[in-house]
Each structure stands twice: as structure tokens, then as C-alpha cells.
Design a protein around this nucleic acid. Structure first.
Length: 859
RNA sequence: GCGAGCGUGGCGGAACUGGUAGACGCAAGCGACUUAAAAUCGCUCGACCUCGGUCGUGCGGGUUCGAUUCCCGCCGCUCGCACCA
């Protein structure tokens, strides 16, 4: 029998789809429901890797399944094309970032097309195209007008060798990732987007995503925004007030119920009062400097000892009138709350550590249930529930009631108010980089910041730039930044910062609705397609991209550019592709020498896996299983797999071996297994005998199995259990092959269903099989098979018979048999009788679960 | 430290709302075909034993006729956040 040849079949089917323009979808109303499937678009780094392949193949399964189920499916693709790797390439190799990027896009587009994805390529765009980023500038200015964009001094990571700002992710152990120079904190005038204005909305919006977004991602966003409710209040000074703080020391607390336990006040080392004191006293300055010394890494913070400095200042307790001393303490954050706290050591571990070290009072004011008035804490603060005591008018109240009462009293006294604060900071979007979207404003001595007029957009990046010296090429470009002020006509300077690339990816899904629209977002088209029904990507974007996109979508909606608040109705976060690493036992300049999988042969010797390097014959150590990466050389290229086994086998394996949310371990054996399945499938279609005579019993059984398979595969796809769905496809094929005596009609029904069920997973093979079976048109356009519950159910069921919960036998009965029948059959079963007799047991109770199981309780 | 998730054969994993644990695949073993190998096909494949059983889903309890599934307490791993008052 002829083998299936992916090398010829796959290009043939891809050509058919292209010729029919099968995946272009219209914005016109077709009467069909819409479905928008989107995978996070790729950064054009140079090549498509297995992680991309897994992501896009999953999306493709959903897209093809929804299409077959009668939806208008939008499944677009584009390029997240701005970013630093392009500039690094420019610096290392002298190529222009644009040329490098566009050439990578061309390569990766070809590689993606090999995957046979049902993408509407007519909507493709790259964010580095002025057609795109010009529209981004347009809405950026709209947000500017609406006060959502502003400039302020911000602290940034500054690389003194490369003369540029680095993102937090580009600072590794305090050093620049490229230059290796120790990164400085520097204050720069930066552009910010006012994401904090949407903090509540972004948290509250998470609720409506319940069930459609992973719980984990929703929690991460909630924690990231970090909303907390408490009391913000001023404590009056007991003596002379520091200059400029006449009306008191303002603090924030979430525990106003513990005010009577106040022991001391704490100031952040960067608090204005701390700075004032440091200026006046070199000893304070030395202490503040000491506080800053500790590293910023997690381990450093964990181990850092609490240190403090008694300022000698005192404040007055709002309820008791007692004097409380004010300390500068290294553990207080300047940028959270007011940068100052009141400390209640009995009920806060950090305060307690500090109080014990400096011998400050520890006054318990919350008493756990059962504890008496003598309740005290030693070295562990009590943070649990309880009743308030030692607290005058709060005595006896529970914590929540006491909080409310304390806030009410402070508000009545006019020294503070209940307040909600957030951990979330405004989004700094300035980058001193060339390869990004220019921020479309002009700085004029006379007029200040002036937006670039609409008729002068887009502000395009100049092509003639050099990368031979560090720093921002836009800043040192001879002419680009010198412009006339659009307002007064005088000499002015163009902004040379570009936007963080996360801005580019915060609205691309809306642009896909109509990528050529004159306005940033075509509202009518967006109304048809948005929100994205199913978004798929890596969990690493749980708070960055996904939070930014939710914010921008809200901001643009409020600005009237579209009408959707939540961009992604459904989100799925898929796992990584991992692979064993191989190490040849040698090192190159201190680093292990890794060996590529293609150069390794694995054998089993005495039950152990042994690896040998093919090129040298040397033994190789099998290392940890890690994410595929160039540095560990454990990369398998999708193109190589496609060339060796065909794309359908690759797609099948990557979908089958692990649940989609979990990491998948790439294995050659696994793909080979998938390739064998492809061959078996084809063999079954190629040998289909259209003249086979009907065979009543066998045919009925095959029809039933067909409906069961349709049910199982449909449910697998619907619930993102692709691995189980593929397992059912394997099992269904095995079932069809067992029915080799089936008549042509039943067999054709089964094979027709199988082709349609396979189509989302192995689209090329499914088309070939469809045609081979004599079906008209493309399986792509065939409707998803629907199962008949009546036909999917067996008419006979096998009921296990348990005695005392252990399986002792089974009885076969018609489906739907009543309990009495089941009980009688179970008791009549010879194996059961033998067991009962042998153990001298009599039946005390019978539990029958209809069509499932029967349990005899004996004693 | 806080939060979330996960522990099932040699491996990846399956088991829908408590109802035959180990589907499907990989690896391994045996056999058929072959001069031979590859490919292909068939069979075996949790552990232990007296081959009929016993035990078995991280560990210890509990609820239940019945627990991988629910509850309590441990142990281990992974991820996220991290001195956020």
C-alpha cells in the first residue's frame, strides 16, 4: 500500500487553501456568530521556535474547530516588531534595526506558513510600520489631551557605560545585561501613563473574567495592583515640628484597630523629614546612607537586619495623648503609603523585630479567643483574629468593628480619613532608544510641551542613524530633533524618547479588526470582532502585557475610540516546550559544553538510558530537562521536524503528550509515534472498500463507537484537553480497524467523522483523507460532526459487582435495567456466590448506581 | 514569610459532578514476516506471592456502601509576590 507522503501532501493542501483564500474573513455581517481567536503575536527574533509552534497550533485547533462549528472566525497574525534585540544586532553587526527586523519577519512568516495555520494573512501588520505606530501616536495624543499621559521625574535604572535607561528585566544582579556595568539609580524626566486611575476598575473587572481566565493570572493581577483599605492620618508633633510639616506626621495604616498598641513611629530613609535631618546632621546622613547600602535582591532583603535611628522627634498619640518617639527605619518603603508608619510591635512581625532590638514598648491590644488580660507576645507577633483590649473605647470589639470605629473617631477629630491605596505605580513608558514608536510631542522653550499636530503624524523614525557610539541615536541625529514649534513657530526640540514596546502590544488586537483603517480603530469592525474570545499565550505576561492591554482598552474606550472594556474574554496560558540537556563533560571558559540533541544517540543499556555523542562517539551525560534555549543547546527546530516527519505529525505530538497548560517534554520517539499514526490513518482510508456488503451487528456497533468518539473529541477540544482529544482519535482509529468486516456505509460514516474530527489537529492529512473517501470540497468547510446521545450510549452495560467496595465480578445487563433486576443479577452471579459462600458472608445491604456499579455490603 | 498549584507505572500522562485506577503515547520485552536488518503486524508490560489472590494514586487519619476525587494534619516539588504597614 502506498505510504502517505507529507512532503507532497502538505504543500498540496496549503496551496489549495491559499488558492481558495480560505482563511480571509470579512467584516460584513454574514448572519453567523463571530469568534475571535488570537495568540500572543511573536517578536521577530529570527526564527520560529517550538514554543511559538505550540502556541499557534493550539490556537489553530480552536480556530478550525469553531469554523467547522459554524462561526465566522477571525484568526490574524502580526509582529511585535519594535525592541532592543534589533538595536543590539545593529551594534554587533552593523545592520540597520529595520532591515534586520523586516528580514526576520520574512523568514518567520515562511516558517509559520509551514505549520498550516488557518490564519487570515490579509490582516498582517508589524508594529514597526509607520502605518501602525502612526495610529498609536494618534491615540497617544488623545490620551495626552485627556490627562492620562504626563511627565514627571522618575527613578530609572541607568547604565553608565551604554548611556541608556534599562528596563528592570535588563538589570541582572545590579548590573547591565550588555555592558556589565553597575547600574545607577538616576532621576530622569519621564513619560508616564496614568494606569493608577484605573486601579479599581482593573481589579473589579477581574471578577467578570472568572471561569474564563486562569485563577492564577487573576490573582497575580489582583496582587500586583495591591489594593488595601486603611486609615491615612496625621499625628501632631509633641515638640518643634520639622520645617514644612507643621500640621503633623502623616502615616498610613491598615490596622487602625491597633492604634492603642502604638510603640514608635517609623520613617523611610528617603522620607523628606529623614532627608531634612540628614542635611543637618552628618550622623543621620551616615545612617541613611547605611540603609541604602543593602542589595535589592530578594535574598538581601530577607536577610537584611532591621536598623533604626532615633530622631529625637516626638508625636502625640491621637487617643491617649502619650508621646511617641519617631525613628528612621530601613524597612520602611518610601514609595508606599506616605513613607511613614505607626508601629504596633505586638501585632506586626517587622515592628516587633525592631522593637525588641531597640528595646521599645510592646503593648498587645488584640487578644486571641480564650486568652486573658495577661496575654503577651514574645518573639512572634500575633496577627490572628481576636477581641480588642487595653484600648479604652475599642475594648471588646472584634478587629473589623474596631477598625471602623477608630477611623470614625479620627475622621470626627479631623486628623485623618479612611483611605484606599494601591501598590500599582503609574506606567513609565519612556525609553531612550531608537527602535520604538517616537513619542509625538515637541518641546518649546516658550510654549512647553506641544503635541505634534494631527496632519504631521506619523512622526517617523529617521532611517539614517548610527550605532557606533552608545546612547540614543535619535538624540544625536543631526537634524531630526530640530523642529519649529507648531504653536509659536519658534525653534523647538522634538522628543527623542520612544515608547515602551508594551504600548505597541496593548491595542494590536483591536487594530486587527481593520488594519488599514484611517482611524486607529475602526469602531464598527471592532464592534463586530471584539472582545477576543480566546486569547492564548505564555503565563509570563500575566501582569505585564495582560494588565497593560486591559488598561489601554479601558482608556481607549473612555476616549470613545472603541466600545469594549475587557479586551480578552477568554484567556488560556500554555506551558513551555522543554527538552533534556546533554553535557559532554568538558567546559569552555568555565561554562559547561552542551551538546545538541541532533548530535546525541540515546540507547537503553541494562534498563538505563545511555547517551553517546554521534560526531565523536564520546559518552554524554544526560542533564536536567529545561526550557529549550540556545544557551543550553537543547533546541529542536520546528522546520527540522517538519522536514523529517511532516507538520501534521509534529502538530499531533505537541498537542498530545501533555495537557496544554503544562510544560511539554519534546521527544523524538513521541513524534515518531505520531508519524506512525498518520500512516495508519492513511492506510485505513486508502483501503476503504466502497463495495463492502452491510454487516448488521458489526455496523451497529461501529456507528455507536463513532458517536462516542465524536462526543469525546468534541468535549476534549471544547475544554482545552487536546491531549485527551488526541488520545480519543488514536482509540477511534483502532476501533475502526477492528471493524474490518463492517459494511461500506457504516465504515464511511466512521471515516467521514474521523476526517472531520482530525481536521483541527492534522489538517493536511484530514483533507487528503476527505478527498480519498470521495467527499466533496474541503474538510475545512465541512460541518463539525454532531453526536446523537441515543446512538452514543451502549444498549448493554457492564456493571462491576463490588462486595464491600472491592470488585469481585461483573454482570452484563441491558442499559437502564432497574435496581431489582441489577440486584438479582448480581446475586445470581456465580463468582459472587462463590465468594460469599467461601467467606461465609450474607448480604446486609445493596447499593445500586444505575448503569454504573452495584455494591453488595456483606457481613 | 504570604498566595496559588501539583504529587498516579520505567517516562509523558488518563479517569466527566465520589462508582471497574493506569485510557492514549513513549520506552522495554517476546513473537510473526525477512537470508538479515529496518519498517510493519501481533502479544506482554504497577508491585508481591502459593496463580488464586494480596497490596497499590506522596505520608497519617477521617467521612462514605464505595475515595486518585471530599475533609483534617504532615512531607515534598513548582510557580508568583516579597520588609506594601
Amino acid at each position: 500500500m502506498a505510504r502517505y507522503e507529507p512532503k507532497t501532501a502538505e504543500p498540496r493542501q496549503q496551496a489549495r487553501w491559499a488558492e481558495a483564500d480560505a482563511f480571509s474573513v470579512s467584516n460584513a455581517d454574514t448572519g453567523r456568530p463571530k469568534y475571535y481567536v488570537l495568540e500572543m503575536f511573536p517578536y521577530p527574533s529570527g526564527n520560529i521556535h517550538m514554543g511559538h509552534a505550540r502556541n499557534y497550533v493550539m490556537g489553530d485547533v480552536v480556530a478550525r474547530w469553531k469554523r467547522a462549528s459554524g462561526y465566522d472566525v477571525l484568526h490574524p497574525m502580526g509582529w511585535d516588531a519594535f525592541g532592543m534585540p534589533a538595536e543590539n544586532a545593529a551594534m554587533e553587526r552593523g545592520v540597520h534595526p529595520g532591515d534586520w527586523t523586516w528580514s526576520n519577519i520574512a523568514t518567520m512568516r515562511d516558517q509559520l506558513k509551514l505549520l498550516g495555520l488557518s490564519l487570515d494573512w490579509s490582516r498582517e501588520f508589524a508594529t514597526c510600520d509607520p502605518e501602525y505606530y502612526g495610529k498609536q501616536q494618534e491615540w497617544f495624543l488623545e490620551l495626552f489631551k485627556r490627562g492620562l499621559v504626563y511627565r514627571k521625574d522618575g527613578v530609572v535604572n541607568w547604565d553608565p557605560v551604554d548611556n541608556t535607561v534599562l528596563a528592570n528585566e535588563q538589570v541582572i544582579d545590579g548590573r547591565g545585561w550588555r555592558s556589565g556595568a553597575v547600574v545607577e539609580k538616576r532621576k530622569l524626566n519621564q513619560w508616564f501613563l496614568r494606569i493608577t486611575q484605573y486601579a479599581d476598575d482593573l481589579i473589579d473587572g477581574l471578577a467578570e473574567l472568572e471561569g474564563r481566565w486562569p485563577e492564577k493570572v487573576r490573582l497575580m493581577q489582583e496582587n500586583w495592583i495591591g489594593r488595601s483599605k486603611g486609615l491615612q492620618m496625621k499625628w501632631a508633633w509633641a515638640g518643634t515640628a520639622p520645617a514644612g510639616f507643621d500640621d503633623g506626621l502623616e502615616i498610613y495604616t491598615t490596622r487602625p484597630d491597633t492604634l492603642f498598641g502604638a510603640s514608635f513611629m517609623g520613617l523611610a530613609p528617603d522620607h523628606p523629614i529623614s532627608k531634612q535631618l540628614a542635611e543637618a546632621d552628618p550622623k543621620v546622613a551616615a545612617f541613611v546612607a547605611e540603609c541604602r547600602k543593602g542589595g535589592a535582591s530578594q535574598a538581601d532583603i530577607e536577610q537584611a537586619e532591621k536598623i533604626g535611628w532615633d530622631t529625637g522627634l516626638k508625636v502625640v498619640h491621637p487617643f491617649t495623648g502619650a508621646e511617641v518617639s519617631v525613628w528612621i527605619a530601613n524597612f520602611i518603603l518610601s514609595d508606599y503609603g506616605t513613607g511613614a508608619i505607626f508601629a504596633c510591635p505586638a501585632h506586626d512581625q517587622r515592628d516587633l523585630d525592631f522593637a525588641r532590638k531597640y528595646d521599645l514598648p510592646v503593648i498587645p491590644v488584640v487578644r486571641p479567643e480564650g486568652a486573658g488580660d495577661d496575654f503577651a507576645v514574645a518573639d512572634e507577633a500575633y496577627t490572628g483574629p481576636g477581641a480588642i483590649f487595653h484600648s479604652d473605647f475599642l475594648n471588646g470589639l472584634d478587629i473589623e468593628t474596631a477598625k471602623a470605629e477608630a477611623i470614625r473617631r479620627i475622621e470626627a477629630a479631623g486628623t485623618g480619613q479612611g483611605a484606599t491605596i494601591y501598590r500599582l505605580r503609574d506606567w513609565g513608558v519612556s525609553r531612550q532608544r531608537y527602535w520604538g514608536c517616537p513619542i509625538p510631542v515637541i518641546h518649546c522653550e516658550a510654549c512647553g510641551v506641544v503635541p505634534v499636530p494631527a496632519d504631521q503624524l506619523p512622526v517617523e523614525l529617521p532611517k539614517d542613524v548610527t550605532f557606533d557610539v552608545p546612547g540614543n541615536p535619535l538624540d544625536r541625529h543631526p537634524t531630526w530633533k530640530h523642529v519649529n514649534c507648531p504653536s509659536c513657530g519658534g525653534g523647538a526640540r522634538r522628543e527623542t524618547d520612544t515608547l515602551d514596546t508594551f504600548v505597541d502590544s496593548s491595542w494590536y488586537f483591536a487594530r486587527f479588526a481593520d488594519p488599514k483603517a484611517a482611524e486607529p480603530i475602526n469602531k464598527a469592525a471592532a464592534a463586530k470582532w471584539l472582545p477576543v474570545d480566546q486569547y492564548i499565550g505564555g503565563v509570563e505576561h500575566a501582569v505585564l502585557h495582560l494588565l497593560y492591554a486591559r488598561f489601554i482598552t479601558r482608556a481607549l474606550s473612555d476616549a470613545g475610540l472603541m466600545d469594549v472594556k475587557e479586551p480578552f474574554a477568554g484567556l488560556f496560558t500554555q506551558g513551555m516546550v522543554v527538552h533534556e540537556t546533554y553535557f559532554d563533560g568538558h567546559e569552555d571558559s568555565g561554562k559547561p559544553r552542551w551538546v545538541e540533541p541532533s548530535d546525541v544517540r540515546i540507547e537503553t543499556v541494562d534498563g538505563k538510558r545511555v547517551a553517546t555523542r554521534l560526531s565523536t562517539g564520546a559518552a554524554v551525560t544526560i542533564g536536567d530537562i529545561e526550557k529549550m534555549s540556545k544557551s543550553k543547546k537543547n533546541v529542536v527546530a520546528p522546520q527540522d521536524i517538519i522536514a523529517a516527519y511532516g507538520v501534521d505529525a509534529g502538530r499531533l505530538f505537541i498537542l498530545s503528550d501533555s495537557p496544554p497548560e503544562r510544560d511539554i517534554q519534546w521527544s523524538t520517539g513521541g513524534v515518531e509515534g505520531a508519524a506512525r499514526f498518520v500512516q495508519r490513518v492513511w492506510g485505513e482510508y486508502a483501503s476503504f472498500d466502497a463495495a463492502a456488503p452491510a454487516n448488521a451487528g458489526v455496523d451497529a456497533h461501529l456507528v455507536r463507537e463513532t458517536h462516542k468518539a465524536i462526543k469525546a473529541v468534541s468535549e476534549g477540544v471544547e475544554h482545552f484537553r487536546f491531549n485527551s482529544a488526541v488520545a480519543k482519535l488514536y482509540a477511534f482509529l483502532a476501533t475502526i480497524r477492528q471493524h474490518d468486516k463492517a459494511g461500506a456505509e457504516a465504515k464511511k460514516t466512521a471515516l467521514s467523522a474521523l476526517a472531520r474530527l482530525m481536521a483541527p489537529f492534522t489538517p493536511h492529512l484530514a483533507e487528503e483523507c476527505w478527498t480519498q473517501l470521495g467527499e466533496a470540497g474541503m474538510v475545512l468547510d465541512a460541518l463539525w460532526p454532531v453526536y446523537d446521545p441515543a446512538l452514543a450510549a451502549d444498549d448493554q452495560v457492564t456493571l462491576p459487582v463490588q462486595i464491600g467496595g472491592k470488585r469481585r465480578g461483573e454482570v452484563i445487563l441491558p442499559r437502564g435495567s432497574d435496581n431489582a433486576t441489577v440486584e438479582a443479577a448480581a446475586l445470581a452471579n456465580p463468582t459472587v456466590q462463590a465468594y460469599l459462600a467461601a467467606n461465609n458472608l450474607s448480604i446486609r445491604k445493596v447499593v445500586v448506581v444505575p448503569d454504573r456499579i452495584v455494591n453488595l455490603v456483606a457481613g
